[in-house]
Simulated assay, not measured.
Amino acid sequence: MENTLTLDSWLGLRNLIVLLFAGYWLIRLLEFLLKKIILTNRGNKKILKILNKIILLYQPIGLLLVLLGFISINYVVHSIFLVFIGAISYYYIKNYVGGVIYKVNSILDKGVSVTIADITGDIKKFLPFGIIVNTEKGDNFISYSKLDKSGYTINSKNDTILRQTLYLKTPYSKPELLDMFFDNPIFNFKEAPIVSEIPGSENYKLQYTLEKGISSENLISFLKEQNIETSLINNTTE
């Protein structure tokens, strides 16, 4: 008799999918019940926030487990098949993973006014592969890849904490910059500064959130004292 607890069979894969599906809806049910009980309780709101992050991570982790179960049935054939599918779907996979990361870690939210490249508007919806930004000219779809490449500036948010982007020209290395920033109290470390290398350039992109009461001019003055040139746009030409 085939062992239904192992994953190296179609029956085992089916049971895994059923188990993951049941677990997902159990978490959804818990989320629904918490929303119905006490919405004004701060503790419950924190639990709901944690549950939302668990749901976001549950989906890709569950999919990964299913794929591993699929591979275990026939390592060679199924691995080649998935590599082929992954190669032709790389752009979508990259966007999907980027979306999960943004939803879990980012301060972006529905209704927030943002500027991304030359587009300014309110975030209307989060999709699996990008976001919808509503502007005066209508809705614009922006992929998570473009969001990561261009950076973004939050123009307004309920808690008035803004996420902004600067481009830096500096002799310092990325680790030296991060050490410098983490020693400076002007940054809000609930949303830690991110320094990214710009392909084809020695410059860096800085995404940051300042403490309340601190202006961008304070940051620019500090960077100037460190002989770091700043710009609001990427002047690198490829």
Results as ranks from 00 to 15, higher is better:
Thr160His: 14
Ser106Asn: 03
Ile186Gly: 02
Ile85Trp: 08
Leu82Phe: 04
Ile186Asn: 06
Gly99Asn: 08
Val77Pro: 00
Lys137Arg: 14
Met180Gly: 03
Ile119Gly: 02
Asp183Gly: 11
Ser79Cys: 07
Leu166Tyr: 14
Gln164Lys: 15
Ser143Thr: 15
Pro128Gln: 13
Val77Arg: 08
Thr120Asn: 03
Gly121Phe: 07
Thr165Asp: 00
Val112Gly: 07
Leu177His: 07
Gly151Ser: 10
Gln164Pro: 00
Leu68Phe: 11
Val76Ser: 10
Asp148Arg: 10
Ile116Gly: 02
Asn155His: 10
Leu166Met: 12
Pro185Arg: 10
Asn74Ser: 14
Gln164Gly: 01
Tyr96Cys: 07
Gly111Val: 11
Tyr102Leu: 11
Ile119Thr: 15
Leu168Ile: 14
Leu177Glu: 04
Ala192Pro: 03
Tyr144Arg: 09
Val133Lys: 11
Val97Tyr: 15
Ile142Pro: 00
Thr165Arg: 14
Leu178His: 03
Tyr144Pro: 00
Ile131Gln: 01
Val100Phe: 03
Val83Pro: 00
Val104Asp: 02
Thr153Val: 13
Gly138Lys: 15
Asn155Gln: 13
Ser72Lys: 01
Ile123Leu: 01
Asp148Pro: 00
Lys103His: 04
Gly111Tyr: 05
Ile101Met: 06
Phe84Gln: 09
Val76Tyr: 10
Gly99Arg: 12
Lys146Pro: 00
Lys124Phe: 12
Gly151Glu: 00
Ile73Arg: 04
Thr170Cys: 03
Ser173Asp: 04
Gln164Tyr: 01
Val104Leu: 03
Thr120Gln: 10
Asp118Arg: 15
Gly121Thr: 11
Val100Trp: 04
Ser150Phe: 08
Ile71Phe: 02
Tyr75Leu: 14
Gln164Trp: 02
Tyr144Thr: 12
Thr135Pro: 09
Ile119Asn: 08
Gly69Asp: 06
Val100Leu: 12
Ser143Asp: 06
Tyr90Glu: 11
Ile131Arg: 04
Pro128Arg: 08
Leu127Pro: 00
Tyr92Asn: 06
Asn74Ile: 03
Phe181Gln: 07
Val114Gly: 02
Val133Ala: 11
Gly111Gln: 09
Ile123Ala: 06
Asp122Val: 11
Asn140Ala: 07
Ser106Phe: 04
Ile73Gln: 02
Ser72Leu: 06
Thr120Met: 04
Lys174Val: 08
Leu147Phe: 09
